[in-house]
């Protein structure tokens, strides 16, 4: 599989703050497990080289230098925006601090579509908060599935948030990549949904949830993908008639 990572640790002084120093540790650790498993990196940008445009469906997401819709898998670690508490009509955001490709804040539901480009993104892993609020999932996330198989993220508030973690991303990578040889079963490879339930809850505050969302052509297909789809399955792109999601709350 072809994967990209985007890790943003530096937000100060240009983009307010605070900085998130472990986002680079996290994306490099995620990449290390994927490279070890034999997957191919497309881009692995950090800090100002991750642009807001990379996540917008206006041509930026297919920019050969770093668009998020070009690889099969994209892992982002950085800031999002949290409402306190969110409502069904509140948007979800990814917030970077790019050298170019502004604006830095991306309204996911309005601006992003994945899986509709030549590279056809299949799996989107967003390790930020709070970009996948359960209350607004239908408004913000159903529209972005244009061939995308699954997305994972967090639902929370300013007081039930994720902590910047050096382990969450790499452990998720370790459980989804499919490690080589007998390591593929000695260390368990899990479905995307199960791996995120187990690792998305690392270093998060009480009340915050790890969320995994899958699309399917019908009810059973959506549930099957939510429960069982692995990145190495080679499944075809779903027609997003149905959505199935699950969450685990700390």
């Amino acid at each position: 599989m072809r994967f990209s990572t985007g890790g943003v640790a530096t937000y100060v002084p240009k983009c307010g703050g605070p900085d998130l120093p472990f986002c680079i540790t996290s994306t490099r650790g995620f990449a290390a497990f994927y490279l070890f498993a034999g997957h191919t990196a497309v881009t692995r940008w950090e800090n100002g080289d991750v642009w807001g445009a990379d996540f917008r469906d206006d041509g930026g997401d297919v920019d050969p230098s770093g668009g998020s819709d070009l690889p099969d898998i994209y892992f982002y670690n950085g800031h999002g925006i949290c409402q306190n508490p969110p409502s069904a009509t509140d948007p979800d955001f990814i917030t970077v601090c790019g050298n170019f490709g502004t604006p830095n804040t991306v309204n996911i539901g309005n601006k992003s579509r994945w899986g509709n480009s030549p590279g056809k993104l299949k799996f989107l892993f967003v390790d930020a908060s709070c970009p996948m609020d359960l209350v607004s999932l239908a408004n913000n996330w159903f529209p972005v599935f244009a061939g995308l198989h699954m997305a994972v993220g967090h639902s929370g508030t300013a007081s039930a948030d994720t902590l910047n973690s050096p382990d969450r991303g790499p452990q998720f990578g370790a459980r989804t990549a499919g490690l080589p040889g007998v390591l593929s079963w000695l260390f368990p490879q899990e479905s995307v949904g199960d791996a995120w339930m187990d690792t998305g809850t690392i270093d998060i505050q009480s009340g915050c949830s790890a969320v995994a969302l899958a699309a399917g052509r019908d009810r059973n297909d959506a549930i099957d993908r939510r429960e069982n789809e692995r990145i190495t399955d080679g499944r075809s792109n779903p027609v997003p008639n149905w959505f199935a999601w699950k969450w685990r709350t700390e």
Binding site: Y11, G16, G17, P18, D19, L20, P21, F22, G78, H79, G80, I81, C82, Q83, N84, T95, A128, S129, C130, P131, H154, G156, A158, D161, T162, L163, N164, S165, D203, Q205
Partner: peptide, 16 residues
């Protein structure tokens, strides 16, 4: 040490 953002609504808290 866990910190929370003061000036923005940015999510994900630094933990050092």
């Amino acid at each position: 040490c866990v910190y929370r953002a003061t000036e923005t609504r940015l999510g994900t808290k630094p933990a050092l």
